[in-house]
Each structure stands twice: as structure tokens, then as C-alpha cells.
Measured scan of single mutants.
Amino acid sequence: TETYETTDETEARKIAEELKRRGLTFRIERHGTTIRIESD
């Protein structure tokens, strides 16, 4: 499991693209301005 936290929408998108490219599944949670991406 890898966890990323960012407040930057663009960075979050880049992380999501990278995880997809590596064939990982992940979920995105939003907590206020923080975007949390957690891979399975």
C-alpha cells in the first residue's frame, strides 16, 4: 500500500496516472483541501 497526500489537484492527477500506468488500483479520498490517494 502506498499513500500520497497533496493539496494540489494537478499533482493528484499525476499520481493517479502513474499508479494506473503501473497497473495498480487505488482510491481517492478528499478531506477538505487535502486529496489522499491510497493504492491497494
Rank of each mutant, 00 (worst) to 15 (best):
E5Y: 14
A16N: 00
E2C: 15
K20N: 07
E5S: 07
I37H: 01
I35F: 09
T7F: 06
R36W: 07
T7C: 10
T34Y: 09
R30T: 08
R27D: 04
T25I: 09
T3D: 03
F26P: 13
A12Y: 05
K20S: 10
K14G: 06
I37W: 00
I28T: 05
E18A: 11
D40H: 13
T3W: 14
I37E: 01
H31C: 12
R21V: 05
T25H: 14
G32C: 06
G32M: 03
E17H: 08
I35W: 14
E9H: 06
E2P: 05
R22S: 03
T33S: 12
K14N: 09
T1G: 12
L19Q: 00
R13M: 13
E5K: 04
D40V: 14
E5Q: 07
D8P: 01
H31L: 11
A12L: 04
E38A: 08
G23S: 02
E38M: 15
R27T: 12
K14Y: 09
I15H: 05
H31P: 00
D40T: 15
R30A: 05
R21Y: 05
I28L: 06
R22Q: 05
I28V: 10
T10H: 12
E17Y: 12
E2S: 08
D8L: 05
R21H: 06
T3H: 09
T7E: 12
R36L: 07
L19E: 00
L19A: 00
I28G: 02
E18T: 08
A12H: 01
L24A: 05
R21Q: 07
K14L: 12
L19Y: 04
I15Q: 02
D8H: 04
L19K: 01
E11H: 07
F26I: 09
I15Y: 10
I35G: 00
D40L: 14
T10I: 11
I37V: 04
I28Y: 05
F26D: 03
G23P: 00
L24C: 13
A16T: 13
D8V: 04
I15S: 00
E29Q: 10
T34C: 11
R27I: 11
L24V: 09
L24I: 11
K20D: 05
E9V: 08
E11N: 04
R27N: 06
E29P: 00
D40K: 11
T25Y: 11
L24P: 02
G23C: 15
R27P: 02
A16Q: 11
R22E: 00
K20V: 10
T34W: 10
E2Y: 15
R27G: 03
T33R: 10
Y4L: 02
A16I: 15
H31R: 10
T10E: 14
R30F: 13
K20W: 11
E18H: 09
G23Q: 03
G32K: 03
I28A: 02
I37Q: 01
E11F: 09
G23R: 04
E5R: 04
L24M: 08
T1M: 11
T10S: 11
T3L: 13
A16E: 06
G23N: 05
E17K: 10
E11M: 10
T1D: 06
E29L: 14
T6W: 01
T7G: 06
K14R: 13
T25L: 09
T7P: 03
A12G: 03
D8G: 02
E29G: 06
R22P: 00
K20I: 11
D8Q: 03
L24W: 07
E18G: 09
E2H: 13
I37F: 04
T1E: 07
R13P: 00
I37P: 00
A16D: 01
R30N: 05
T34M: 13
K20M: 12
T34H: 06
E9W: 14
G32H: 04
E38D: 05
E9A: 09
T33V: 10
F26R: 02
R27H: 10
L24S: 03
I35R: 01
T1N: 10
T7D: 12
T10M: 12
L19P: 00
E2R: 13
T3S: 10
T10Y: 11
E17C: 15
H31A: 07
T34K: 08
H31M: 10
A12S: 03
E17L: 13
